[in-house]
Structures are given as structure tokens and as C-alpha cells.
Design a binder for these strands. Sequence first.
DNA 1: CGCACAACTGTTATAATGTTTCGAAAATGC
DNA 2: GCATTTTCGAAACATTATAACAGTTGTGCG
Lengths: 151, 151
Amino acid sequence: MDEETLQTALDTAEALCAQRGVRFTAQRRRVLELVCRAERPVGAYEILPQLHTGATAAPPTVYRALDFLLEQGLVHKLETLHAFIGCTHPEHPHASQFLICADCGRVKELENEAIAGSLRSAAQETGFHPKRPVIEVLGTCAQCTHKAESV
Amino acid sequence: MDEETLQTALDTAEALCAQRGVRFTAQRRRVLELVCRAERPVGAYEILPQLHTGATAAPPTVYRALDFLLEQGLVHKLETLHAFIGCTHPEHPHASQFLICADCGRVKELENEAIAGSLRSAAQETGFHPKRPVIEVLGTCAQCTHKAESV
DNA sequence: CGCACAACTGTTATAATGTTTCGAAAATGC
DNA sequence: GCATTTTCGAAACATTATAACAGTTGTGCG
């Protein structure tokens, strides 16, 4: 995420939190910034040492901030990687899908209604009530596929 | 899984392994049995103490068996639960979806072509090559929804 | 058979991820 | 300002997973 996009993301986050009446504290802002700056999903323990200038913070510090950001839909957790990634469109609640490149580590967030819809209707057929869908596809992105073929 | 279904599952597993030229050792059989006997997904560390009569086995023992069973498609790993579940139809490779009840803990394995297909085509649009799709939906099953409403 | 090799298993130690708990500090509302 | 709620700091601990190395068992083959 480039500097400009980052600033927009932080501003959006701040506005959303104000609107929802929840506190977007300096610490939460900092964690969101660190997650967004990364090109790839980042683990909680990668963020940790970047929180304090002197000694590194303790795990609950970062997990609390991440929990808050998850609740507010400002970041997503990738279960298959045990890592976090900034949300690309936090304005509205949504069911996302993630394409995770096993080669370069980059992740593409989709918001595909066909996938979400087919999942919803399949669940409905069995009487199941979905709360949180987790859809992550491990594979190879277009760029890395191309690179591999040209070798 | 009842006793009869379990025996069938173990026999099927044995036949599949023989056919593929891989070893279905006593230990692997035992781990598969323990996973299948459970009504719910089981963690690796739940299986561990059941492996030895005297002292409990060490983690790598059970993880190695589970890795084998995963490779052979005889069990699935639920990433959101860090737990394992017996596969309901191991005969053919397949992309499954899992409906996980947060209330009773039970899991329903789906094999829905509409979901798999829409995911495939969404990935294809971006040039992404899927290897391992992970589709897990946390929610409430029909039975538990009914129970909750009748209270 | 008996040897060589590969595959599987045991064991110790350690890494990586996540949680509980208790208490201090800061912000909020009145 | 003062009580209440929320957030933050810190120590200890729980859970999940892997690395490394040695021993054992099975398999193929002369």
C-alpha cells in the first residue's frame, strides 16, 4: 500500500470509528498502519516489536488492537496463514474471499457475490445459519505463474 | 460415526492406500480411527494421549500420521479450529466445504459444485491458479437454531 | 537368506501463536 | 472533580506446530 492510499485508509478508519462511536486510539491506529504498510499478510508477532521504540510490547497489546480492528472490519485475519491484512473496503460489512499466492505471498481480496450467494444457499438447504464464512484459496497468482513458465 | 461406518471407513482407507502403493501402518490406522470415532473435530493434542497405553506419545508422532492422512485425503484439517475430521468420501479428490456449528461443535461436509465452480471462475478471472481451497463457515446448525428458538 | 536402502517411529527440545489475569492509567459522563 | 468504563502494560502460561537426530522396521534385490 503506497503512502497516499495508506493515509486514505487511516482517515477512513478514523471516520468510521467516529461514526460508530468507538475509539480509534493512537495504538489502534498504529497497528492498522503497520498492517497496511506491509505488502503481505503480517503475523501478530511481526507487529509487536514495532510498537514500542525501546522494549517490545507484550502479545496482548497487539492482539487487543487486532481484535478491535477485526470487529470493526478494518483488517481481516487469514486463518490459513495465522496472519492479518488490511481490508480494502471497510465501509460496509462484507463476505470476502482471499486468493493467497504461495509463491510471492501476496493476497488478493475478492468480494464475489456468486461465491457468497452459492455458499449461502447451500447452507440454507441444510438449515444452517452462517455467521462468519472463511474462504481462502491457496495457489499461485498470475504474475508468479508467468514467471515460473518463463524460466 | 458408528462402529459399522467406522469399519467401512478403515477398510476403504486400507484399500485406497494399497491401490496407491502407500503404507497404511498400524499407527496411521489408529490415528484415523481416533479421528473418525470423535463426533466433533479433534485437535492433534487430543489424539496424542490415546496413542500409547503407558506414556503419551510426542507431538511429531501424531502430526506425522495426520500429515499422511491429509495427503491421502482421508482426513481434513479445519483451519479455523486447528482440528481434524474424518473425510466422508475419500475415494476421489475433492474440494469440500465445511459448515461448523459454533454451538454443538458438529461439522457438516459439503461437496457443492456451484460453490467450487464459482470460486474457480472468480480465480480464473484474475489469472490465479488455485491449489488448495479452504472454505469453512462458522455458524449455527439447524438443530441448535431450533433448540435456541424453543427456549 | 542377508544385506542395503528407504520409510517409518521415538524422543528431546524448541518455535510460533494465542490467552488469562491482575493492576495501572486514561478517557468519558455526570 | 469524582465515579465509572474503557484501554493499556506486564508477567505468566496455554496451545499448536516443527526441527533435528537417532533408532527401528519394512522392502527390494542379489
